[in-house]
Nucleic acid binder design. Sequence first.
RNA 1: UGGGGUGUCGCCAAGUGGUAAGGCACAAGGUUUUGAUCCUUGCAUGCGUUGGUUCGAAUCCAGCCACCCCAGCCA
Length: 580
Amino acid sequence: MTDYKNASTTLDGAVDSSTSSNFIRSKIAQDIKEEKHGGRVHTRFPPEPNGYLHIGHAKSICLNFGVAAENSGLCNLRFDDTNPEKESQEYVDAIKDSISWLGFQWSGDVRYSSNYFEQLYAFALQLIESGKAYVCDLDATEMRDYRGSLTEPGRNSPHRDRSIEENRDLFERMRAGEFADGACSLRAKIDMASPNINMRDPVLYRIRHIEHHQTGSQWCIYPTYDYTHCISDAIEGITHSLCTLEFEGHRPLYDWILNTLDIASLAGASDLAGTEYDYVLPQQTEFAKLKLNYTIVGKRTLKEMVETNVVQGWDDPRMPTLAGLRRRGFTATSIRNFCESVGVARSESIVDLEMLEHAIRDDLDKNSPRAMCVLNPVTVVLMNLPDEHLEILSMANHPKDEEMGCRSVPLTKRVVIDRSDFEEVPPQGFKRLIAGGEVRLRGAYVIKCIDVIKDDAGKIIELHCSVDLDTLGKKPEGRKVKGVIHWVSEDKGIPLSVRLYDRLFNVENPESKDIEDFRECLNADSLVEMTSCIAEPSIVEEGASLNYQFEREGYYCLDEKDSSENKLVFNRTITLRDSW
RNA sequence: UGGGGUGUCGCCAAGUGGUAAGGCACAAGGUUUUGAUCCUUGCAUGCGUUGGUUCGAAUCCAGCCACCCCAGCCA
């Protein structure tokens, strides 16, 4: 039961609260004003546990939980588990985990449509008793044939006019397990000539002799989505049933079922029974799904990518799943901000991935401590320093946020810099190290390259540099040194591996109809592993963070799954913006 | 083709009869010991299209065009 007195949906964490208007917020505001549901707002997020949640679900989650929180309302989590064939407990657990991670708390206990199987059955009997449902023996093929087409009306099933007694008897025997899968079904008696195909006597119950992850072998008949969803909403006292556009044509059926049932019995079965509230039927409102360019959010395909090892699991950091984004280093805040920024509307659109990238950079820039990590090292020998030189430099963890404190960074005679920060033949505008040129080691001294040491194959193995010891914390005299590069002490540095991720697909719309197989457009370089990286020691010292901005490189986070004590693995969440 | 939807800047998106918000992207400057961040500026005489109503239309009306959804005992 719902505690209407003491609970309302709340949100922890800082979310951009500059909410803009959208048609759902407007509608809810209007309904509250008119006291349509006694001023209540009660939504629900109703996933089927047949896969992991992805970024598209995040939009729905943020909408449902968000709109409830904004209006001191409630939001339920309900697993729409009416098709046990595709569902599993693993998905139930993963979904709960992702929602909590995103920062939302559902009202009361987790609900399952299967909680209502007994009530759903009783309501089906009610429909039969009022002559509004019948048991049909047509098989799937015949039913399709009788349904007609987009332009032709359907024909009545030969079983449409069975007596109420016969229907009741047959339906009870369906439940008792007397019939094989598919032998018959319970159908609503509506209108086989309706221009809306969803209204041509839709199936309400089908026979499936199969174990259910929640109800075990208790049932062998399972209610369909259309029949279940509206009644579940009604039972839970949902006021606003928000779903995506493809269910638009189902709304007349949603309404038909609830209006055909006896409202008093619906009210009596609902969470509102015994409360001060008048019973008002829930209302379905549809909005456009979230699509992102360069990514696939179709569950079927995501599942196939996992099963065929295109990726390494549902939480592969390249996946658009919440588990994947999380492992990649996306924060819950960034995803919520992103969802707010894309808005909610009824026009179908494909959001630019850069919107998501902006959201994560924005959050991480503010909240990630800085550190230096050299991905592709080349040795720099600081010639005028003694062999045993060890200097501990103090550097700010964040350039703007003093409260983030400082860290110690050791400087030794031998350091490493990234190979790409030295060029023998620099391109126009190159601001890094060149032979005979100067550059600043970030947070340390200005150095000058005096010698380039190569092996027999011509590969650079060392750069010999001199240090201007008068440049710590101040500008060199009489000249400008524009470049600043990051570096790490060669012997004090921590070795680690880094995984550079890029988009999984190399076309804007991998879900487009003219792409037969997603494998055609996979980006071969979506994962590049760098195994010889060296980072400053602060990343493993006490108080170390799980995520950093590796300066001049990007935002990275520890991969807790693949890291061990003697092997550190970091995932690149996102690069820094690069206008060079 | 029957029914149901949607069309506002490169991408999202506000706007509901009073003369086109905002974000992303992009461009140009400035600051900077991260080619980051930050700051400033620019970026739709135009709202799918053609007509109509009106002093006035993205908003109202009519026609046309384009795209999306529906013919599972999936959700």
